[in-house]
Computed example of a mutant assay.
Amino acid sequence: MEKPVLPVFDQVDHGIRILEEERRRIARDLHDGPAQKLTNISMKLEVLKMMMDSDIEMSKNQVDQLHKKVGAVIREIRHLIYDLRPIAVDEVGILEATKALCTQLQQNWNIPIEMHVQDSVESNLIAPAKQVALYRLIQEILNNMKKHAQAKTITLDVVQESHELLITIRDDGVGFDPSYIPPGHYGLIGMKERALYLGGTLDIHSVIREGSTFVIRVPANKG
């Protein structure tokens, strides 16, 4: 049975839904990542406590392995913290913030991410608060590509067309059918709602085995 989607009546509804979806995403990431791994470590520590007297050498090896796993969990938590508040987007601007994001994700994922910005484009084409929301949308698209696309490369292009800022994000991954949304999966709908909240649009083009393209259009002004 498909989960019902409540109607959206105005911009306030959009904003509340976006905030709630962000909270659900954070809870999901914490539950599926660090929480499960720490639970597994805790169980292994219980086993280790029982075997310490009978096999000291194996116990030492287990301690070393658990120490490495704890280090990995700490790094994962730090990445989640970075996602929550990476840098002051409203201070450095959307362009510098996105460049820093691409650099960070490229290092974390070991996937080349190329960003190209048209010379005439400046961050102040968009109001500071809207820049933060736009950054979150870009971040969500990139995370979605990492999770589902199996891409070898990702490119991000930023240009200005008339009174719009145009951001195109492409991957060379497995592609998907944009018209089909599996029950319980509303990530693409949420992304489009973020774009609408900014007064813009998000177009998604994808073909199975031919990659995907996400095109964000937002008004280029200071209002």
Rank of each mutant, 00 (worst) to 15 (best):
K3P: 03
V5Y: 07
P7E: 02
F9A: 05
D13Q: 03
G15A: 07
R17Y: 11
E20Y: 06
E20G: 05
E21W: 10
R25Q: 02
I26K: 12
L30E: 01
D32F: 03
G33H: 10
A35W: 14
K37P: 01
N40R: 11
I41F: 06
S42V: 02
M43I: 11
M43S: 08
K44V: 05
K44C: 05
L45V: 12
V47H: 08
M51P: 02
D53F: 13
D55E: 12
E57A: 15
K60L: 14
Q62N: 10
V63G: 00
H67Q: 14
K69H: 09
V73P: 00
R75H: 15
A88N: 11
E96W: 09
A97N: 05
T98Q: 03
K99A: 10
A100V: 03
C102P: 04
C102K: 08
C102V: 09
T103L: 02
T103M: 10
Q104A: 00
W109C: 08
I111P: 01
I113L: 05
E114D: 13
M115N: 11
M115V: 13
V121C: 05
E122H: 09
A129N: 08
V132F: 06
A133H: 08
L137A: 12
I138Y: 01
Q139P: 01
E140H: 13
E140T: 11
I141E: 11
N143F: 15
M145F: 07
K147F: 04
A149C: 03
T153G: 08
T153M: 11
I154L: 03
L156R: 01
D157N: 15
Q160E: 05
E161C: 12
I167F: 04
T168S: 13
I169R: 00
D171G: 07
F176E: 06
S179R: 09
S179G: 03
I181R: 11
P182T: 12
P182N: 07
G184S: 13
Y186K: 06
G187V: 02
G187L: 13
G187D: 15
I189H: 15
I189A: 10
I189Q: 13
K192E: 07
K192I: 01
E193S: 02
R194G: 01
A195D: 04
L198M: 10
L198P: 08
G199F: 05
G200Q: 00
T201F: 00
D203E: 10
I204M: 09
H205E: 14
S206A: 06
S206V: 00
V207A: 04
T213F: 03
R217N: 15
A220L: 15
